[in-house]
Amino acid sequence: MTDALRTESLRTATEVITTRRRDPADGRPSAARAARARARRTGARGEHAVAHLVLGLGALIMAFPFVWQLIMSLSTNAQVQSVTPVFWPGELQWGNYVAVFERLPFFQQFGTSVLITAIRTVAQLVLCTMAGYAFARLRFRGRGVLLAIVLSILMVPSQVYLLSQYQIVQGLGLLNSIGGLVLPGLFSAFGTFLMRTAFLSMPQELEEAARLDGANTWQIFWRVMLPLAAPTMSVLAITTVLWSWNELLWPLVVTSYSADMPLSAGLATLLSDRTTDYPVAMAASVLAMAPVLIAFIVLQRRVIDGLASSGLK
């Protein structure tokens, strides 16, 4: 009997609440809530419209140099040097891309760039990861001093020790060779600092649990810590690829022949202090940039995830 009364009371209360919500005479609170909901939706749509407008404008500004480069690569030299900008060349000059292969050993320089980038990326992933783990997790005498020396490299412009690096490479007989090109980029202070930060952020309990299970230092590094540092390693690989592919000064210093240069230095040989064929130079730049651009488009999600997880600005 009590359960029946309780059920009837609940049904009556529900009907009263429903009637009040639907009663036009008592509908002011519901109308006010609806008005507030409409206002929030309108405000949200307005904020989204402004955000999309700002983002679209920013994307246009960022993409314009690349689009302008494409337009110039398909124009004539007179159109490029015209005082009045020519936003569309009319007849597309596809011969500028053919001229690139006539003036440069493009495929040979492209292969050199790929080889240099691959060697440097693999070397930095191995050396910087191991050095970062050592500075973050291992305790040894002089660790603080060595870390300070490594980090001090970040405060010195690379041009300061350019002459010393050249003398070392010259003394080793590595001028005009792949070894001379890749040697200074096998290790980086930035990569070491980045990996050290990643290993410091990992819980100490993981390492202690692995030691209790009988794992040695190498097993802890290889099987426990390294998989967790994969996002940061992807960031290191991306930055190393971009830096190595675009490096210009060092290849110009240690190479004297066009056939031994990577693409970044080979493009510089197309520029002259007397006459420069700008459309051909722009076409060569597009071809040199295409592999990195395609790789970014294919690996875009991994690139963004890696940068977000590492906190790199």
Rank of each mutant, 00 (worst) to 15 (best):
A308R: 14
V100Q: 06
S272L: 05
V86C: 05
L194T: 03
G27N: 03
L162E: 04
M261W: 00
T121Q: 10
A283I: 01
P262N: 02
A32T: 03
A51W: 02
V182S: 09
L206E: 12
R21C: 02
A148M: 13
F187Y: 14
F110P: 08
P157A: 11
A39G: 13
L267Q: 08
Q167A: 15
F296K: 04
V156R: 07
L183E: 06
T239A: 05
A134L: 10
I238M: 04
W94I: 04
G144L: 04
T12Y: 06
V86L: 07
H48G: 06
D23C: 05
L228R: 07
S73F: 09
E208C: 08
P105E: 00
A290L: 15
M261T: 03
E208G: 04
P203V: 03
L194M: 11
A268D: 06
L293P: 09
T112M: 15
A134R: 08
Q93S: 15
V16L: 14
S113M: 10
N77V: 03
N96D: 12
V100C: 02
A39N: 05
L92T: 06
L287F: 10
A99D: 11
A131F: 12
D260Y: 05
I149D: 02
T239F: 04
V224F: 06
V16P: 02
T121G: 12
A13S: 13
G171V: 11
F221R: 05
A281P: 01
E91N: 11
A131M: 10
A25C: 03
S285P: 10
R38Q: 13
L53D: 12
P105S: 00
I71V: 15
T12C: 03
V182A: 11
M195D: 08
R143F: 07
L127C: 14
S309T: 15
A148L: 15
G43C: 07
L307S: 08
E102D: 14
E207A: 09
L55C: 01
R139K: 11
S82K: 04
L154R: 09
M195P: 02
L154M: 14
A284G: 02
N216P: 05
L10K: 07
W243L: 06
M130R: 15
R301E: 10
P203M: 00
P89R: 00
S75L: 12
T112N: 14
V114E: 09
W222K: 15
I178P: 01
S164I: 14
L299G: 07
T192Q: 09
G142A: 04
T19W: 11
I297H: 01
Y278K: 04
I238L: 14
L10R: 11
M62C: 09
L146S: 10
R6K: 00
R274C: 00
Y257P: 01
T197V: 12
V145K: 10
A4G: 01
Q79L: 13
M289R: 06
E15K: 13
A31Y: 02
P157F: 12
R41Y: 09
G171R: 07
V182M: 08
A229D: 07
R36G: 12
A288L: 00
F296M: 15
R211N: 05
